Deep mutational scan, measured.
Amino acid sequence: VKVFRALYTFEPRTPDELYFEEGDIIYITDMSDTNWWKGTSKGRTGLIPSNYVAEQ
């Protein structure tokens, strides 16, 4: 598990995607895809765009 911080707010387009706000901490559990990672924030899990976060 790696810890990342959201650089921007992300509004999901599908139920599989995770909503998060700029500054949120996201725990990444799967980075197997280059563009979409699986992450958890505020008790919810979903896909996030990798270019919206920076490693802490």
Rank of each mutant, 00 (worst) to 15 (best):
W36N: 03
G46E: 01
W37T: 01
R44H: 10
D33L: 07
T29P: 01
E21Q: 12
W37C: 03
R13S: 13
L18S: 00
I26S: 00
Y19W: 12
N35E: 13
E17K: 08
G23V: 02
R44S: 07
T9R: 12
G43K: 04
E22R: 13
S32Q: 10
L7T: 05
F10P: 01
P49A: 05
V3S: 08
P49F: 04
K42G: 14
K38S: 09
A6N: 01
T14S: 14
I26M: 04
F20V: 09
A6W: 02
G43E: 05
F4M: 10
M31V: 07
L18T: 00
V53L: 14
R44L: 09
E55P: 14
Q56L: 15
V1N: 11
F20E: 00
D30P: 02
K2V: 10
Y8G: 06
P49Q: 05
Y19K: 10
V1S: 11
N35W: 14
E55K: 10
W36A: 03
T9P: 06
N35T: 13
V53W: 02
K2Y: 10
S50N: 04
W37K: 02
L7P: 02
I25H: 04
Y52T: 03
P12W: 05
D33E: 07
P15G: 09
G46L: 02
E17T: 04
P49E: 03
I28L: 03
G39P: 00
P12I: 06
P15C: 09
W37N: 00
G43Q: 04
F4K: 01
Y8R: 14
A54Q: 14
G46C: 04
P15T: 10
V1G: 13
T34N: 14
A6M: 02
V53D: 02
D24G: 01
E55S: 09
W37F: 11
S41T: 14
L7H: 03
I48S: 02
I28M: 08
Y27K: 04
L47C: 08
V1C: 15
L47K: 09
N35D: 13
P49H: 06
P12M: 12
R5F: 14
Y19C: 10
L7R: 06
Y52M: 12
R5H: 09
T34A: 15
W36K: 04
A6T: 01
T9A: 09
K2P: 06
G39N: 02
